[in-house]
Write a protein that binds this DNA or RNA. Structure first.
Lengths: 346, 346
DNA sequence: GGGTTGCATGTTCACGTCAACATGCGATGC
DNA sequence: GCATCGCATGTTGACGTGAACATGCAACCC
């Protein structure tokens, strides 16, 4: 039976199913089991038989049915990724890396969005998740939502948490936020700024909290005064707003923003108020997003290795899925990228 | 049997399977079919029976097995999304919208990355795809790769193409690139610029081509001279490079960049060479990414409605999946957002 | 009151795959 | 020459679900 005939047959009876192992077996004159063996690349098949089967597969346009495979084996070769809006630079880059790493390992990615980070929504996402065909989950949302909600992840489901903390319930892969924040703060102090102001991310974000705490600790360690924190929401808008506040205070000479977007907003505020960067005010960001080298002035920032985070989280998860070994949490280093937005105070 | 006991049982014999319909049926004292009916929300079940079944499901921690369901029904309730790197602002926003729209419709998203846009890679992605458990596919890659390669998408698989063209093989959901480019160009001309230079996206991108063609057509329609095109690669780096070239030419007073990132690079080039924006040179972007309002100066740009694109493509695809009707192609409008990077020539 | 209708529920079986076990056959050992 | 082994291949059944069909029972009609 040719592929065209096959499809015609199926079109006729209204089903859209592709050819099955049985069809291939018939075409090749072997048993279904032999087709299965060829399909799974086992070596205990006579080369000649294998060729015949492969030829039959090709001519019929056979594709293994992943649902049947999953049903039989109990494994889906799929990883669920739960995340808020992708609209954060870091999340996006991390997801990208996860997708690539997963594909390399033969896993597909099942994206589960949580449009609004409320407990209700998280709950819904998790409920949905439990019906999803995934072998494990990578969570890229603020974990406090896990702590507080009575949401239950399906037990026995391997989980890796990214860029957050999760008590010690799950392994965590995170950027070394504290290290990055220390690098940024020390860089500014080493330029002889008396102290460093901080435009932080939202209160409930762990990344934001870690960066802020490390900034504060670094200032204290160097005997510098700790100015009040300005809290933003990661957006350049909020950076702009807080930047305007800082611009009014002539004693401010060094600002560490918790991400590049807010740093961009701060830069805009400085331009608007005529305060020279880096002449009067130095600014450091966090993330090293692709665009930050084109900001004006090009932004000194802390580079995160999102690819590494994605890669490691997939690695950890698949390890857990395949060998049952629960991974340990790991930190990914950061590095300071000095560009043109920092200089000694006037 | 309680949930704990149930899991203990399974742990003991080494299987990690959850309880099945049969377990629930036994617990509730009904047949499997009745459980199935409750599970699928059919209304022909006695309320009392339904409650008993729901209670049994809860106590056992029952979750429908999606693999078995898919095997039986031939439907996966899953949409495959094929895309290059997420690292483009537009792709990311579109994906986000797709994910949300799909979730609302009860579909999950299967992300299939194509790290390198070569034919070989595309081929691999498609091969992989054919084993994936998806009911349809949304393709967000430059479609010429489809045209040229001998890659075969599984026949009968519904496909929607986003932000590209696809001959008339598949329905296309696209932003009205031409309209946007015309808005941008006319805005600059209306400010009395003699002509408008264009920093285009890569040759092989359809979006880039459409924008460029519309820019050129608009200039011609207004009797303006058409200057040579500068071709970038969407990155702010390339915008910077080409911007430096443009900055050297004093006759350049208006620049339309094919995306915001390249516009950012152009802005940087102007700052570096001391050419005032918008005093000496006006710059318009395309996309209206979240950050562009915080560029210096805040960027005049063409807003794309990525959410709408994502929503419509999901709608079109699901329509095709569920009713078999092939959708028609649609265009999503754009709008000009005037900020501070444009002004009449000096 | 016999037949019909409507509704809740049960029984059977097939979806496509693959593990486990079975078969068959040539080669090898003593 | 007979037992044994290795290897390619075949047969059977189960994974969990839900469509199709079957059953059983109460209400209703003329």
């Amino acid at each position: 039976m040719t592929m065209a005939e096959h499809r015609a047959t199926h079109a006729a009876n209204g089903r859209r199913r592709g050819p099955s192992m049985a069809d291939v077996a018939r075409e090749a004159g072997v048993s279904g089991q032999t087709v299965s063996r060829v399909s799974n690349g086992r070596d205990n098949v006579d080369p000649e038989t294998r060729d015949r089967v492969l030829e039959a597969m090709r001519s019929l346009g056979y594709r293994p049915n992943s649902a049947a495979r999953a049903l039989r084996s109990g494994r889906f070769h799929s990883i669920g990724v739960i995340m808020f809006t992708l609209s954060s630079f870091g999340n996006m880059r991390t997801l990208d890396a996860i997708a690539v790493a997963a594909a390399d390992a033969g896993y597909s990615i099942n994206l589960i969005p949580v449009p609004h980070p409320t407990q209700g929504e998280v709950s819904v996402a998790f409920d949905r998740l439990s019906e999803e065909a995934v072998d494990g989950v990578i969570i890229i949302i603020e974990a406090h939502l896990l702590d507080e909600s009575d949401v239950v992840l399906p037990p026995e489901l391997p989980v890796v948490v990214v860029d957050s903390t999760a008590g010690d319930r799950y392994p965590v892969v995170d950027t070394d936020q504290a290290h990055g924040a220390r690098l940024a703060t020390e860089h500014l102090l080493s330029l002889d700024h008396r102290t460093v102001w901080h435009v932080a991310g939202p209160e409930r974000s762990y990344s934001a909290t870690h960066r802020r705490e490390a900034w504060e600790a670094t200032l204290r360690a160097h005997g510098a005064e700790v100015p009040p924190v300005l809290v933003g929401d990661w957006s350049s808008e909020s950076g702009h707003e807080l930047g305007l506040r800082l611009a009014r205070d002539p004693s401010v000479t060094a600002i560490f923003a918790a991400n590049d977007q807010m740093a961009l907003g701060v830069l805009r505020a400085m331009h608007e108020t005529g305060r020279a960067v880096p002449g009067e005010v130095s600014v450091v960001g966090f993330d090293d997003m692709e665009e930050s080298r084109s900001f004006w002035p090009p932004l000194t920032t802390v580079r995160q290795f999102f690819d590494e985070v994605g890669r490691r989280s997939v690695e950890a998860l698949i390890g857990e899925v395949e060998s049952g070994s629960v991974a340990t949490s790991t930190l990914v280093a950061t590095e300071l990228v000095v560009r043109c937005s920092t200089a000694p105070p006037a």
